[in-house]
Computed example of a mutant assay.
Amino acid sequence: MVNMLKRMRKLRELLWIRNGPGAIQLPKEVTKISVEFHKKLIGSQHRGARHFWHDILPRIKYRNPTLPISVIRHADPAGPAYLNIYTSTPTPQTSTTPPPSTTTAPEALNDTPTHTIEIKDLHESEILEALVEKTGAVVLRTPPEEAAEMAEIEEFKERAEVDRVEVREKLMKVRREEELLKLARGEISAQE
């Protein structure tokens, strides 16, 4: 069984999915989000779209679990890069009779997006700003306790990297000394 402290640290690192850029609550009218971009990173045209897909979309999905999100990666490097937002438009009530049934299920998805944002050559933060602007999403702030916990995790990672370098240097020093001893004893030749 893995050390309990190691497991706790790994679980605490999952805070990144709850906080940070992309931790937004989308309105109920948004029924689907679709992202389209090139599947390989050639040049910097699709870099923002790829970073948006990799870093920000998981947070959006975490905060909006019922929202379908589709990612289309095409093979044409000169191809388009779009963020499509599908919304349900509430129909105005013209009659005085109540609706036949009140359900919480989203309406049928439209085939055409309500908003299309060209995301080629945009930074992932600009893409997120455009999404929030078009949908009217609520940006969720990080609670102070989780912010402190995230700072503690970052501090731990920095200390771990310093410790890793020190241990590597000590290990290399020990190996060099062992090789010099073997060379002095004549167990290995100087050419090896």
Score class of each variant (00 low, 15 high):
His54Ser: 11
Thr135Ile: 03
Thr91Ile: 15
Thr104Met: 08
Pro106Asp: 11
Ala130Trp: 01
Ile119Tyr: 01
Ile127Gly: 03
Pro106Ser: 13
Leu109Cys: 03
Trp53Met: 13
Ala81Ser: 12
Ala105Ser: 15
Ala105Ile: 14
His115Val: 09
Ile85Asp: 06
Asn110Thr: 13
Leu57Lys: 12
Val132Tyr: 01
Tyr86Trp: 05
Pro100Leu: 12
Asp55Leu: 14
Thr97Arg: 07
Val71Lys: 08
Asn84Glu: 15
Val35Tyr: 00
Val71Pro: 02
Gln93Leu: 13
Thr96Leu: 11
Thr112Ala: 15
Pro58Met: 13
Thr102His: 05
Ile72His: 13
Gly136Val: 01
Thr114Gln: 09
Thr89Asn: 05
Val71His: 02
Trp53Cys: 11
His115Ala: 06
Thr89Pro: 01
Thr103Asn: 10
Ala78Thr: 10
Gly136Ser: 02
Gly136Tyr: 01
Pro90Glu: 11
Ile56Trp: 02
Pro99Thr: 08
Arg63Leu: 05
Leu83Val: 04
Glu129Ile: 04
Pro77Leu: 09
Thr97Gln: 08
Asp55Asn: 15
Thr91Ser: 14
Asn64Cys: 04
Ile72Lys: 13
Thr102Tyr: 05
Thr104Gly: 15
Thr87Gln: 10
Pro98Thr: 06
Glu129Thr: 13
Leu67Gly: 08
Ser95Gly: 14
Gly48Met: 07
Ala108Met: 13
Gly48Glu: 07
Arg63Phe: 08
Pro98Met: 04
Leu109His: 07
Ile72Asp: 10
Asp121Trp: 12
Ile60His: 08
His115Gly: 02
Pro100Val: 08
Pro58Gly: 06
Pro90Met: 07
Ile56Gly: 03
Gly79Gln: 08
Glu129Pro: 00
Lys134Trp: 03
Ile127Asp: 05
Thr89Val: 10
Ala81Glu: 00
Lys120Thr: 06
Ala108Pro: 12
Val138Thr: 15
Arg50Thr: 06
Arg73Gln: 15
Ser125Arg: 15
Asp111Trp: 12
Ala137Asp: 04
Ile69Ser: 05
Phe37Ile: 08
Thr96Met: 07
Ile119Lys: 03
Gly136Thr: 01
Glu133Arg: 09
Pro80Phe: 09
His74Gln: 12
Thr66Tyr: 10
Leu67Lys: 04
Tyr82Met: 01
Ile56Thr: 10
Thr116Trp: 02
Glu36Met: 11
Asn84Leu: 05
Thr91Gln: 15
Ala49Tyr: 00
Gly79Glu: 06
Thr103Gly: 07
Ala108His: 08
His51Pro: 00
Thr116Arg: 12
Tyr82Asp: 04
Val138Phe: 06
Leu57Pro: 04
Ile72Ser: 09
Glu124Asn: 08
Ile127Asn: 04
Pro106Gln: 12
Ser125Gly: 06
Pro113Phe: 12
Arg50Glu: 02
Thr116Leu: 03
Ile127Gln: 05
Phe37Gly: 01
Gly48Tyr: 01
Arg47His: 10
Gln93Lys: 14
His123Ile: 07
Gln93Val: 07
Pro106Glu: 12
Glu129Val: 06
Glu129Gly: 05
Arg73Lys: 15
